[in-house]
Design a protein around this nucleic acid. Structure first.
Lengths: 374, 374
DNA sequence: CGCCTTTACTATAACGTTCCAGATCCCGTC
DNA sequence: GACGGGATCTGGAACGTTATAGTAAAGGCG
């Protein structure tokens, strides 16, 4: 036995046979590993003849080229960015808004020649922070997480560059948002200007916990993140119109989906049958709300008006607040790349514009009070 | 000078200060690196007291936990899978069918606790095969590539497990498809059974190259991949009905989009004004086709019938061939995980079922010949 | 002919882990 | 009192690269 077994249990030669590595190729050609590395990464550092010879032998040996992981370790870069969502992995593919953001990210990434890593998370379980802890990436784009979310905390602990989209807004972090307050303020104001006197609100989740039902006035300040901003926007418009915010019913939907909007609207109509105008914090919720209204015999916009948010329900003819979702993604990538470039940067908070898009789901309220008519 | 400069230009001590590593923590605590590693990975291998002490010091030093890249190198696994598309990165976020596949992949991945890496590619340029060459992943899911595509070749060269979705079908590779031929055969047969005598076909790209316009009979055999299968399905149905395949107009659309379908339909109507039934190889194309028909004053389904493919146009009331897109993604992941588990596997080809969904875009042809009526 | 530059290639030391095989100690047991 | 054995912890060699500095040979120039 010329060779004695190595600690790792396999003999070097045997290992070599399994799968060619860079030094394997080097030995076969009879040059140093550096030259093989250069053949792949810096063609100008060696003669064309040698390079040719190296690549040929590599092909013969079935060497698949430098191992990305080893290269990343040595270089200290991985060439890919991670995107983190608060929900399970399939979520971004079910919510058209999240998809638009993702699409923007994808567009930005394509230019930057980086890959995108989607890390699975779950809303409730802290079980699998593992995925974000173990993601071999250069930076994070964090979408719509709450500050106390475990996923977010783990991402922070990684000490990598982070760009936050849609909150949370944290000390030294870059952040890209819209002015959510102004958005819903415009939505509510639109209804009020049309003459509506009784507004209802269908909000997305107010906190990290799943909750459903009417939100009493004294609990509204507990809302966090985007929902809080949007709620405040509604309040501002309602108060500016001289109406009572406390008497305005706010209904919390269990999630951002058509079904949850449907259920929320039913509850809203049960709680306050006099509502003639509804501000929904998502187009999906608005679509569900319209269905629920129709089931009660209420025609949109003649009997009741609905304003959505995001402008993602293409075929629904919905009055809504448009926000540049894809742009958020693009900017996030752009910014992250800047951060990665190493130049020290002061954190930036970019606020993107929103726009009220008036379509066919809003109109003046019925002339006769609906309550009287019934 | 007690320490002389290290070759890499930075002194070890200085380096340590920059960012704590596992050995840095080990030194600080006064234990071996192995113990620190175990503190993170195998809590049962050390006393609770020591583990506690290690984690505390790690926190003090700001050590972010074991570096994923180094860990991956050592372990020989990266914990993430890559998905490769033939188009630029944003593409899967624009085509609802691709999105559904992606969503299925995401669902499968969530269960398997793996991350998903989306690698950018481009249809024409071979410039950035780099992304797939450098992706630090354990395996590939390759979607709808052609065999000669550079991206596909590079993925093959990586010698990692590969699962192919929607072709190409290659020697020892696992593959998940539907019976595309049977799908379009059913679509065309449906029209023929309704009584249509003159069928038109709107096909997706037939080859790797962008091409538009009518496909003469003697060029149809040049089609590759899925488009070829689907074309053959149409031919079979047409011939079985006793009609002439050579006289059936086949129009190639530049890409899979509403706009391209619109343009394709215009060209189809120009080429063969007598068509009363159209088989489109994608719902997006079908939607565009209907628009183009409407512009010519042709009402669907009264003047002309259209069958789509994929069943992804939710609001369009389209007769279509449904295929289990998300299921494809789920199965691909499942299979890939199996391959990664190491047990030697014989390659499997899974063929998923399709289903004709009859909705409002098909009807018997107009009783009077349209040509006569005009 | 000595000196300086360029070209082509190499030696060496990291990058930050984890795995495997011990080494040490303490305890109970025959 | 020797022995087996679990519980803890350590040593050292990989994993597969690449950056940096350096060497040797070849060419240019006064």
């Amino acid at each position: 036995m010329p060779e004695n077994p190595k600690p790792d249990g396999r003999q070097t030669a045997e290992r070599r046979a399994q799968r060619a590595s860079l030094v394997g190729v080097a030995e076969a050609v009879g040059v140093s590993p550096s030259s093989v590395s250069n053949a792949y990464n810096r063609p100008d550092q060696l003669s064309a003849e040698l390079r040719e010879r190296i690549l040929r032998t590599a092909a013969e040996l079935g060497y698949p080229g430098p191992d990305p992981t080893a290269r990343n370790l040595r270089r200290g870069r991985s060439g890919s960015l991670a995107m983190v969502f608060p929900e399970r992995l399939p979520y971004p593919f079910t919510d058209p808004y999240a998809m638009l953001v993702l699409r923007g990210v994808a567009e930005g990434l394509a230019e930057a020649q980086q890959a995108l890593m989607l890390v699975p998370g779950s809303p409730d379980q802290e079980a699998d922070e593992g995925a974000v802890r173990n993601a071999a990436v250069d930076g994070f784009i964090v979408h719509s997480l709450l500050e106390e979310n475990a996923l977010f905390q783990v991402a922070l602990a990684r000490q990598l560059p982070i760009v936050v989209v849609d909150g949370p807004q944290v000390r030294g972090l870059d952040c890209i948002t819209i002015n959510d307050r102004a958005g819903t303020r415009a939505a509510a104001a639109h209804l009020l200007e049309l003459g509506h006197q009784r507004i209802g609100v269908l909000t997305t989740r107010l906190t990290g916990h799943t909750n459903t039902g009417p939100v009493p006035p004294d609990e509204r300040h507990l809302a966090v993140g985007i929902a809080r901003q949007r709620l405040e926007g509604c309040a501002e418009a309602v108060l500016a119109a001289g109406l009572s915010w406390d008497d305005t019913v706010v209904m919390e939907c269990s999630m951002t989906s058509v079904e949850a909007g449907h259920a929320g609207m039913r509850a809203l109509l049960d709680t306050d049958p006099q509502v003639t105008g509804v501000v929904a914090f998502s187009d999906l919720i608005a679509v569900g709300a319209r269905q629920a209204a129709a089931e009660r015999g209420l025609m949109v916009p003649f009997d009741i008006s609905i304003v959505g948010f995001d402008d993602v329900a293409q075929f629904e003819n919905l009055t809504t607040i448009r926000q540049p979702a894809a742009e958020k993604g693009r900017l996030a990538v752009e910014r992250l790349i800047e951060l990665l470039s190493g130049a020290p940067q002061v954190p930036k908070h970019q606020v993107l514009p929103t726009e009220l898009i008036v379509r066919g789901s809003t109109a003046p309220p019925p002339v006769l009070s609906r309550a009287a008519a019934r």
